Simulated assay, not measured.
Amino acid sequence: MSALNKDIGTFDNMVTALNYHMYQPVILANTGEFGGSTAHAPFSGHEKVIAHVHGSNQLAISMFDIDPTLFKSKTKISSKN
């Protein structure tokens, strides 16, 4: 999601919650005017935070690769009809 967000703390908490709730990578790119861009993925330990930039009126570029197949379900869901 992209944002022009002044309330960085609230949106940081939302990204963290979505990462746990939806069990998927979540990326928030905020404008450099306000700062607060972040990327999280449901990995183990402290590896959940992929990139996190705070501070206002600065230019920051974070580059990273995420393999989407890591989050693909490997078990089949069977219907009990």
Rank of each mutant, 00 (worst) to 15 (best):
A60F: 06
H46S: 13
I61P: 02
I27G: 01
M22C: 11
A51F: 03
M14D: 14
G9D: 15
A3H: 04
S2C: 13
A29H: 00
A3V: 05
D65T: 11
K74Y: 10
N30G: 01
N5E: 15
F11L: 09
A39D: 02
G45K: 03
M63F: 00
L18G: 00
N5D: 15
T16W: 11
A41T: 10
A51G: 02
F43L: 15
N57G: 13
G9W: 07
T69R: 14
L4P: 02
H54W: 11
H46E: 15
I8E: 14
K76A: 10
G32P: 15
T38R: 12
Q24I: 08
E33Q: 08
L28A: 07
K72F: 10
T75Q: 13
M63D: 06
A29M: 15
I27H: 02
A3W: 03
A41W: 06
Q24H: 04
A29Y: 05
T10A: 11
K48W: 11
V15L: 06
F64T: 01
H40L: 13
M14S: 03
I66E: 02
E47M: 11
S78P: 09
N30E: 01
G32F: 05
A39Q: 01
V49R: 06
S2H: 09
F64D: 07
H40D: 00
F34M: 03
V15T: 14
T75A: 14
N30K: 09
Q24Y: 09
